[in-house]
C-alpha cells in the first residue's frame, strides 16, 4: 500500500447526498479478478452517456477537475455494497482523499486498506470546502495527515480527527495482515480456549 503523508491536489465538488457504491462503480465492472484498471469506469453511469461518450457536465469530465485527487462529497458517501472495487476505482482514477460529513462504515474501512484517506467533518466545514472545490483549477487543497490539517486556497486551516491505528498504517503504508500475524500467539491462545468453551463451532 502506498503511504499517505501529505497530499496537495485539486478537489472536485460532488454535493449529492447518498452517493452509493453502485454509482461509484456499477456492477458490470465487478467481474474483474484484478484490483487495477477500474479508474476509467469510476462513476461510469454519471460520467458517460449510452454511447459511451463523456457527459461534459459531470464534474470529473470538466477540464479543471480531470486530475482531481480529492473529492468533497455530500452526506453518507459510499453507502451500499461492500465492494472494494469502489475504493479501487477511486484510487485508479487518482483520488487519494474523500471529504464528507459522513461515510458508510464498510466503504470507510475499505478506503484505509487502499491508502485512501476518508475525512469526516462537520457540515459547515464541508460546505466551506465544497465552495473552495467549486473554484475549479484554483481548488487546490493540502491534506496533511501527520498534523491532521486541511489547508484551503485562501490559506485557512481546518483540523480533522482520524483513528490512531489507521493513521499509523497510512503514514507508513503498512499491510494489516503482516501486523496481525505478529499477534499469532494471541490468536492461537484464543482459538484453543474457544475450542474448549464452544466445541461445536
Amino acid at each position: 500500500m502506498e503511504k499517505f503523508i501529505k497530499l496537495t491536489g485539486v478537489a472536485a465538488p460532488m454535493p449529492l447526498v447518498n452517493i452509493d457504491t453502485d454509482m461509484i462503480i456499477p456492477k458490470q465492472f465487478l467481474k474483474t479478478i484484478k484490483r487495477s484498471g477500474l479508474g476509467i469506469n469510476l462513476f461510469d453511469e454519471m460520467r458517460y452517456d449510452d454511447n459511451g461518450d463523456e457527459i461534459p457536465d459531470f464534474v470529473l469530465n470538466k477540464p479543471q477537475y480531470r486530475d482531481a485527487q480529492i473529492l468533497v462529497a455530500g452526506d453518507n458517501f459510499g453507502c451500499g455494497s461492500s465492494r472494494e472495487h469502489a475504493p479501487w476505482a477511486l484510487l485508479d482514477f487518482g483520488i487519494r482523499c474523500v471529504i464528507s460529513t459522513s461515510f458508510a462504515d464498510i466503504f470507510y474501512n475499505n478506503c484505509f486498506k487502499n491508502g485512501i484517506l476518508p475525512i469526516v467533518l462537520p457540515q459547515e466545514e464541508v460546505d466551506k470546502l465544497m465552495d473552495d472545490a467549486a473554484r475549479g483549477a484554483n481548488a487546490v487543497l493540502t491534506v496533511d495527515l501527520e498534523n491532521q490539517t486541511i489547508s484551503g486556497p485562501d490559506g485557512g486551516t481546518i483540523g480533522f480527527e482520524v483513528d490512531s491505528f489507521q493513521k499509523h498504517c497510512l503514514l507508513n503504508g503498512l499491510d494489516d495482515i503482516g501486523q496481525t500475524l505478529e499477534k499469532g500467539a494471541a490468536i492461537d491462545a484464543f482459538e484453543a480456549q474457544a475450542a474448549q468453551a464452544r466445541p461445536w463451532v
Binding site: 484490483r35 461492500s82 472494494e84 464498510i106 474501512n109 475499505n110 494489516d176 495482515i177 490468536i187
Partner: peptide
C-alpha cells in the same frame, strides 16, 4: 467486509 478484509480473515 471488503476484499482486503476477506484476505485478512482468510489468513488470520
Amino acid at each position: 467486509i471488503g476484499t482486503s478484509e476477506v484476505e485478512h480473515v482468510l489468513a488470520t
